[in-house]
Design a binder for these strands. Structure first.
Length: 151
DNA sequence: GCCAACGTTGGC
DNA sequence: GCCAACGTTGGC
C-alpha cells in the first residue's frame, strides 16, 4: 500500500467538489512523470489532496484510489481542452485513476506549516522547483501530516 | 503579476 | 540528437 499527494487548484476542483461528487476520475493530467505515478497507484492507496495556487495553500484532506488507472477519456474528446490528437483508443497516451472521498481536514494544513515541520523536509512537494502534480509520499510523511491535521 | 524552473516542440 | 524558443506550473 502506497501513499501519494495530488495537487489541484481549488478554483478548478477542490476537496469540497470531491466531497460532493464522492468519486471522480483524476483526469486531464498531461505530464508523463505524473502519469507514470498514476499508473502505479493501486486501489486502496491513500492520497493527500493539495490545494495549489490558492489561499491558503496546503493539504485539505484525504482521498483513496478506488479504481486503478484507465485511459483518460478526455484525450479522445475533440471538444475537450485536453484532447490529444496523437492518442488513439488502441494506444492511449494518458491514464487516470478514480479517486474516492475519504475526509476533509477541519483546517487546511498549510504549506507554511509543512515547511516548518522538520520531519517533512524531504517531501517532494517542498523541494525547490517541484511542479509535479502527482507526488509519492512516504508512510512516515503521511502519518506526520495526518497528525498535524488532528486526524 | 512576476518569474524561476521545468517540460515540450520542432527546425536543423 | 541538439538546443532555442515557447508554454506551463505554481510559489511568492
Amino acid at each position: 500500500m502506497n501513499y501519494w499527494l495530488c495537487k489541484s487548484e481549488p478554483s478548478v476542483y477542490s476537496i469540497d467538489d470531491l466531497k460532493k461528487d464522492k468519486t471522480t476520475l483524476w483526469d486531464s493530467i498531461r505530464n508523463y512523470q505524473a502519469r507514470n505515478f498514476m499508473k502505479e497507484m493501486k486501489a486502496g492507496d491513500l492520497v493527500l489532496f493539495y490545494h495549489s495556487n490558492a489561499d491558503p495553500m496546503g493539504i485539505s484532506g484525504v482521498m483513496k484510489v478506488s479504481k486503478e488507472a484507465i485511459p483518460d477519456p478526455t484525450q479522445f474528446d475533440k471538444k475537450n481542452n485536453y484532447y490529444d490528437e496523437k492518442a488513439t483508443k488502441d494506444k492511449p497516451r494518458w491514464f487516470c485513476p478514480e479517486m474516492k472521498f475519504v475526509k476533509k481536514f477541519k483546517e487546511i494544513v498549510t504549506r507554511d506549516e509543512l515547511k516548518a515541520e522538520k520531519g517533512l523536509s524531504e517531501m517532494v512537494l517542498l523541494q525547490k522547483g517541484s511542479r509535479l502534480s502527482v507526488n509519492p509520499v512516504t508512510k512516515k510523511q503521511y502519518e506526520i501530516i495526518l497528525k498535524m491535521a488532528g486526524a
